[in-house]
Amino acid sequence: MKILVALKQVPDTETKIKVGAEGRSLDPADVKWITSPYDEYALEEGLRLKESKGAEVTAVSVGPEKAKDVLRNALALGADAAVLLKSNETGDPLAVAKTLAIFAEGKGFDLLLFGNKGFGADNGAVGAMVAELLGLAQANLVTKLELEEGRFRAEREGDGGTEVVEGSLPAVITAQRGLNEPRYAGLKGIMAAKKKTIEELEGTAVAATLTVSALTLPPTRPEGRKLDGDAAAQASALLGLLRDEAKVL
């Protein structure tokens, strides 16, 4: 079985957001870069399948040179191969999806694993787009995955509660928290990863369908009001304010 895992390098989720001088993107000064949290579940699932069923796991990232860090980490965790598709992030999920689809096309991957959402851009789109571009089945927000004989059964967080999606392989699965507990890289893995190579390819140039023209900070919420009195007085004051001042009840 051949598995592809798409990993995105993103700012640490605790990053204090500062807008860059051009007003369109994040100021990269002082930003610590990490693997997008949901992508860790995707990678872990690939590694577990490798261990339980035997699979070759390829990690791929679309990004600049520094995105090699997430690939190096994936190798340390147990991925067999890592590929960097060099390209500068445009903020267009379809452009990223096309770059990934062009790379994956014809390589015989049985399973393509994604995070359900990349932190930062928060699109929640690239997995489904790749599925469409390659004409594959998809299941998003998956919390449990089973594979057998060319088919998958996935439990996902859907509308009515937990939904069971069944479909054919090859398929795109996007990971949700709960799918597994990601492992940490051990010293042995880190040392071994240093000897493995990260393949670097020029990402295919694809036209953007949308561009970010401005990045702004949200208005700060005005300091709220604390309510006095005992519990009963606070409760009735609050309900009054919610009904008459905020008009939300």
């Binding site: 267009d92 699109n123 489904a128 787009m129 369908t209």
Partner: peptide
């Protein structure tokens, strides 16, 4: 941007080569 909308619309976007802005 319901669970179904978020699942479906990116796929439609890829089919049509359309830009997709989420949420």
């Amino acid at each position: 941007a319901t669970p179904m909308g978020k699942d479906l619309l990116p796929r439609v976007a890829a089919k049509l080569g359309a830009g997709y802005a989420a949420e």
